[in-house]
Amino acid sequence: ELREAFAKVDTDGNGYISFNELNDLFKAACLPLPGYRVREITENLMATGDLDQDGRISFDEFIKIFHGLKSTDVAKTFRKAINK
């Protein structure tokens, strides 16, 4: 299930999730959020999830993000976006 969610976000299939891919995910989900809020959520996920600070999120980092977000608003938003 997590591998499928990761693949859905990794639209270019390079094995990593970029800032733009995350941002595009939230935009495509048509969530009722202003653009600046989408950017804040994306920046927050990148800042906390990109553990090796290479500017992208690997599958291992994605798993840690996903499990670390349990019930936060960001987690709910992220799950809604993935499930669209």
Rank of each mutant, 00 (worst) to 15 (best):
N23L: 11
K64F: 01
F66K: 01
N83T: 14
G49K: 13
R37A: 12
L25I: 04
I63T: 13
F78W: 12
C30Q: 15
T48I: 05
E21W: 00
K76E: 14
I41Y: 06
T72G: 13
E21H: 10
K70S: 09
G55K: 08
D50C: 07
A75M: 10
P32W: 03
V38D: 02
N44H: 13
N44D: 11
I63D: 06
V38H: 04
L31K: 10
D12H: 10
Y16R: 06
F78P: 15
V38R: 04
V74P: 14
L33I: 12
N23Q: 14
G68P: 05
G49H: 12
E40S: 04
E43S: 09
I63G: 03
G49V: 05
F19E: 05
N14A: 05
G68H: 15
A75S: 12
F59G: 01
L69Q: 10
R37Y: 04
V74Y: 12
A29L: 15
L51A: 08
G15T: 01
D24Q: 08
I57L: 09
S71V: 08
S71T: 10
D50I: 02
L2E: 01
G68W: 08
D60K: 11
R39T: 09
K84E: 15
G49I: 06
G49F: 07
G55A: 07
K80L: 08
E1W: 10
A5Q: 01
P34L: 03
K8A: 06
F26Q: 01
L51C: 07
I41G: 01
K8S: 10
R3G: 03
F66V: 14
E21D: 08
D73M: 10
G13F: 03
R37K: 14
K76H: 13
D60P: 11
L22P: 00
F6S: 00
D60H: 09
D12R: 05
L69G: 05
C30E: 15
V74E: 15
D50N: 07
L69K: 05
M46S: 13
P32H: 10
N83K: 10
N44M: 08
V74H: 13
M46V: 13
F78L: 10
A5V: 02
D24S: 06
V74D: 14
T11G: 04
I57G: 00
V9A: 09
S18A: 09
H67D: 14
D24I: 05
I65Q: 03
Y16N: 02
F59D: 01
R39N: 07
T77F: 13
K70R: 10
K64S: 06
A28I: 13
V9F: 10
L25R: 00
K27I: 09
L69C: 08
G15Y: 00
H67M: 07
R56Y: 11
Q53P: 13
G15D: 02
I41D: 02
D52R: 14
N83R: 11
K70H: 09
L2N: 04
K70E: 11
G49D: 07
R37F: 06
E43P: 01
N23V: 09
H67S: 12
I17S: 00
P34N: 06
N14I: 02
F19Q: 06
T48S: 14
I17R: 00
L2R: 04
D10Y: 00
G68A: 15
V9D: 00
S71K: 09
E40K: 06
Q53A: 11
T42R: 09
D10H: 01
L31R: 05
G13V: 00
S18I: 01
D73R: 07
A81Y: 05
K27S: 06
L51N: 05
L69D: 08
N23D: 14
L51V: 12
K64D: 04
T11E: 05
T72P: 12
V74R: 12
T77M: 07
F59I: 07
C30H: 14
I41R: 02
D50L: 05
S18D: 15
H67T: 10
G15F: 00
D24K: 10
K84I: 06
R79C: 13
R39G: 04
L69I: 10
A5I: 15
I63H: 04
R56F: 08
K84M: 14
I82T: 11
M46K: 14
R56N: 08
E61Y: 02
A5W: 02
T11Y: 03
K76M: 12
T42H: 07
Y16T: 05
R3A: 05
N83H: 12
K27L: 05
S71Y: 11
K70A: 07
D10I: 02
I41M: 07
A47I: 06
Q53Y: 06
I57P: 00
R39H: 08
L31F: 12
A75F: 07
V9L: 10
D52L: 07
D54H: 12
I57H: 00
G68Q: 15
L33Q: 12
K76L: 09
L31A: 09
D12A: 11
V9R: 01
G13C: 06
I57C: 02
E1P: 04
T77P: 14
D24V: 05
K84A: 15
T48Y: 06
A75W: 07
Q53E: 12
I82V: 04
L69H: 06
E61S: 09
Q53I: 08
S58V: 01
R39M: 05
V74A: 13
Q53N: 12
A29Y: 09
L31W: 07
V38P: 02
N83D: 13
K80I: 10
E61G: 08
F26I: 10
K8Q: 09
V38W: 05
Y36H: 15
D52N: 13
Y36Q: 15
K76C: 12
A75L: 07
T77V: 09
F6H: 00
R79G: 15
Y36N: 15
H67L: 04
G68N: 13
F59E: 09
K27M: 04
S58R: 04
F62W: 06
L69V: 12
T11A: 09
F62H: 00
K80P: 15
C30R: 14
C30P: 07
N44S: 11
G13L: 02
F6Q: 01
E4M: 15
N44Q: 15
D52K: 15
P34D: 14
R79F: 08
E40C: 02
S58G: 05
L25A: 11
L22K: 00
I41P: 01
F62C: 14
A5T: 01
N44F: 06
D73E: 13
K70L: 13
A75T: 14
E61M: 10
K64A: 07
E43W: 03
V74Q: 13
L51P: 06
Y16D: 01
A47Y: 04
A81T: 14
G13E: 03
H67I: 06
K80G: 15
E61D: 13
G55S: 07
E61Q: 14
G55N: 07
D12I: 03
R79N: 14
G49A: 08
F62S: 02
A28D: 07
S58F: 02
F26P: 00
E61N: 10
A75D: 14
N20G: 11
G68V: 11
S58M: 01
F78K: 15
I57W: 02
R39Q: 10
K70G: 08
D12L: 06
N20T: 13
L2Y: 04
V38C: 06
I57S: 00
F59Y: 11
T11W: 02
F26G: 00
D60M: 03
T48V: 08
T77R: 09
L33M: 12
R79E: 15
L45Y: 12
F78Y: 13
T48W: 04
K8Y: 08
H67V: 05
G68Y: 11
L51G: 10
M46G: 08
D24Y: 04
H67R: 09
L22N: 01
L31V: 12
V9P: 00
D12S: 08
E1H: 04
R3V: 09
D12V: 03
R3F: 01
D50H: 06
G15I: 00
E43H: 10
T72D: 10
N83F: 08
T11I: 06
T77Y: 06
C30G: 15
N83S: 11
R37N: 10
N44T: 13
Y16K: 04
C30V: 04
H67N: 15
D54T: 11
M46I: 14
E43I: 04
T77I: 08
N83W: 04
K8R: 06
N14V: 04
I41A: 04
G49P: 05
A29C: 15
K8E: 05
K76D: 12
V74I: 10
D50W: 05
P32D: 15
F66R: 01
D54Y: 06
I65M: 08
H67E: 15
K27A: 09
E21S: 05
G35D: 14
K64H: 06
D73S: 09
I65A: 13
D10T: 02
A47K: 14
F6M: 00
P32E: 14
L2D: 02
